[in-house]
Design a protein around this nucleic acid. Structure first.
Lengths: 330, 330
DNA sequence: GTGAAAGCGCTAACAG
DNA sequence: CTGTTAGCGCTTTCAC
């Protein structure tokens, strides 16, 4: 790979000059510029960004720490982030924390060692206050990671209410909520809160079933079947779409007609679900807007790490209504 | 962030010595080692990998170029690759080529500028012979990119036969195949070939419907509905699971019972599909093995870029049989 | 067993 | 308008 000095020699100028035309700075004569461009072209020159970031320039590398891209929600979020970042001439280092604190710590160190310009993290890990000792700017998706780390999320509480009220409106009276495990700081807690408040307001009982994020789908099915047969609810609200699909499956196995005998609402509303399970009603998180906002905030911090940002940014959710719920009163 | 010189000063030794203990190289007295380790620890020292790779050491950065992680198959493949690479102390730069040749060219340049140690690409782009001018080692997933670039794939031809023969065995006689657009070098072509050969052998007619990868699910539904009503097939084989889900949906809308009136087989067999659509029969690609092999080959090339590798490595597929096909003869 | 010093490819004062 | 030169943080000969 050709280097700056090669280009300089070929163009018959100094390395400084070449550096200047590359970075378009200082004053250059048109003639030199042309010469240099020509040399760069014939040598197929590509600046070495490692050398560049060594001497202080931004690496334009962004670390993305998420539980994993095989989950459709995170897959779409990561892809959206990557697309938008890449359009802004940033590159993305992908980190799958698999919800393991040690792994995450290691990633954090690694990202710093690689001089990343910033980090966006949406991991499910908790208690990692070590985030506060990272000097690269950080934006968090949906988690509290430290007092100076802005949180971007969609309105989990409103989402919980939205879903529950939809179910109440259709006449359901025994509405079960299936959520991930109740862990401190978890964003799904607010979804549960929205659910509980809505039911309380309507004077209806609450039933929350917690199925850990990490539980296998097969086990989840077992739990769901048991609850469906025991409680005989007429509606289920799941804090994610995948679990909702499981509920739909089990209901069918039990001969329960959806939505006649069981109404169902999920959460997340990824493109994948809307395209391939359009009958599933779900609370839609605005992935594109979330990504835009996180990037915008991160860039502000990259420009000036001291800039004061809000502790929390909340974006509105919307409702996708499909056949899994009837819009009419029962 | 502390640097080598800081550690050296604190430990009362030279930078050389510190570098030696970090890289475990040359001969050091236990005493110095201990001192240095202590200093590294109190300073929370982390070697700057940018500086490291500048002076010649490997960046331990691997570029991953795929159409996008929002597709479950690529999402799982990328996640698997990332997990395994990260366990080997490599980091991953994620590139979503979105099937755009220019984007991909830009990614290739960028990856080289970042001194990546190697590249794994599974993009849907074609004709990019520019791959041959990249000096980082490359391994390709399922595409021909140049004579010296090994291709790793699962056995698409066998997969096509497997699915088709399953359908034939159940008594289907009008078996439609829905594949992605027929493009040169596309791996799905071999799946179609397997389908055609199986039917020819059984003296049955072939019907291939091509729906471009990029076509919207809504449009795909329209096309599928039209073909289902016109041709009235008794079985459909799709070259990917998502399209198979669409077929299942449309069939249900048309009042066609699966598998009694319509048998259905998909392709890919991701964890997601097996967990959430277990009734769908599908040809399962061995994602873990594919990832292992690609990484193994890449590491060989990283160690010695001249090492002779096969042009093509083909891994066996398997069949997941669900209720969308009856295993008994009709 | 340990250190001094050159240099990886690039940028940015500082001179002219 | 252009060139000389000193590093960025680290590894690695070559000395001692």
């Amino acid at each position: 790979m050709a280097k700056l000095a090669d280009v300089a020699k070929l163009a018959g100028v100094s390395v400084t000059t070449v550096s200047r035309v590359i970075n378009n700075y200082g004053s250059l004569s048109e003639k030199t510029k042309t010469k240099v461009f020509a040399a760069m072209h014939t040598l197929n020159y590509q600046p070495n960004s490692v050398a560049r970031s060594l001497q202080g320039k931004s690496s334009r590398l962004i670390g993305l720490i998420f539980p994993g891209v095989s989950n459709p929600f995170f897959g779409e979020l990561v892809q959206t982030l990557e697309n938008k970042l890449s359009a802004l001439d940033y590159r993305v280092i992908l980190c799958n924390s698999v919800n393991n604190a040690d792994t995450e710590r290691a990633y954090l160190r690694m990202l710093q060692a690689n001089q990343v310009a910033g980090i966006i993290t949406g991991t499910h890990n908790l208690t990692i206050r070590e985030y506060e000792h990272v000097d690269a700017p950080i934006i968090s998706f949906d988690r509290h990671l430290g007092d100076n780390i802005p949180i971007v999320s969609s309105d989990n509480y409103a989402g919980g209410k939205l879903a529950t009220e939809l179910l109440i409106k259709t006449g359901a009276t025994c509405i079960v909520m299936i959520s991930g495990a109740n862990r401190p700081n978890s964003p799904t807690n607010l979804r549960v809160k929205g659910y509980e408040d809505s039911l309380q307001q309507a004077d209806l009982p609450t039933h929350v079933l917690e199925l850990p994020f990490s539980m296998s789908p097969t086990l989840k099915r077992v739990e769901i079947r048991q609850h469906l047969t025991t409680l005989k609810p007429d509606a289920v609200f799941c804090s994610d779409d995948l679990t909702a699909i499981l509920v739909g499956d089990v209901a069918q196995e039990l001969g329960l007609k959806i939505p006649e005998q069981l109404k169902l609402v999920g959460y997340d509303g990824t493109r994948l679900i809307q395209d391939y399970q359009p009958q599933l009603s779900t609370v839609v998180q605005p992935i594109g807007d979330l990504a835009d906002l996180m990037i915008q905030l991160l860039r502000q911090r990259i420009k000036d790490n001291k800039v004061q940002l809000q502790a929390q940014y909340t974006l509105p959710v919307s409702l996708h209504t499909g056949a899994s719920v009837l819009a009419t009163k029962a």
